[in-house]
Amino acid sequence: MWRIFHKLGSPKWFFGIAARFMPWLLAGGLLLLMAGIIWGLAFAPEDYLQGNSYRIIFIHVPSAFMAQSVYIMMACAAVVTLVWRMKLADVFVKAVAPVGLVLTFLALFTGAVWGKPTWGTWWIWDARLTSMLILLFLYGGVIALDRAINDEKSAARAVAVLVLVGVVNIPIIKYSVEWWNTLHQPATFKLTEKPSMPAEMWVPLLLSVLGLYLIFGWLACVRMQAEILVRERRTRWVKTFVTTGKV
């Protein structure tokens, strides 16, 4: 098991594997996301209370879910960076932080636009919305800290510590709607219970969540490849890849 783990740390090996998986991730992701969105927009029934404005859920929930998942993945990578000093883990954190930033922004933006017709306000300082805004700043902080430190190794450690410190925000986001009273409603999906919406609403939602997950996988591969090329440009395998296209 440890051997696979260390092999995974080899940038060259990852570069080749990523190149093989990427077309499938992109095709599957686009297919699922499009299917979920078209189903949700045009075919799912309207909600008895909110009418058609609830259709924003088919992009709001995937963005918010991915924004938090990406941060959890970054935190796992940060532990690997700090304990094993594996370069690939640091490459991952740097490559996906901007993706997380965009996803968090999308979750906040779609939430605000959804809030106006349903709640009657774009923004309110309740625990869920505020903790999500903190997540946006955490992503911004990670990107800024990484750019501020020139030395690659010290940047990797500083960023890993910041990511780990910020991970306490994730359970706060998740449970904010249960621990405190908020304007935001509790989660529709729980691991232990049936979702509190009918199948013709949650199936398209599940499709778009899975689709966005795969697209994230593809984005992570593309961006990690770019970061690996920058770091390993002096090695022989990068030279053969650039000149012949083979890894």
């Binding site: 029934p45 209370l49 859920i57 349903t118 009657g120 304007l183 509790p186 989660a187 509190s196 009918p198």
Partner: peptide, 18 residues
């Protein structure tokens, strides 16, 4: 001076709610 609506986590088609 301001009233906001709060809804719950349940979504359903109008026929079902009726």
């Amino acid at each position: 001076d301001q009233v906001l609506a709060k809804h719950d986590e349940n979504y359903m088609p109008p026929e079902v709610s009726g």
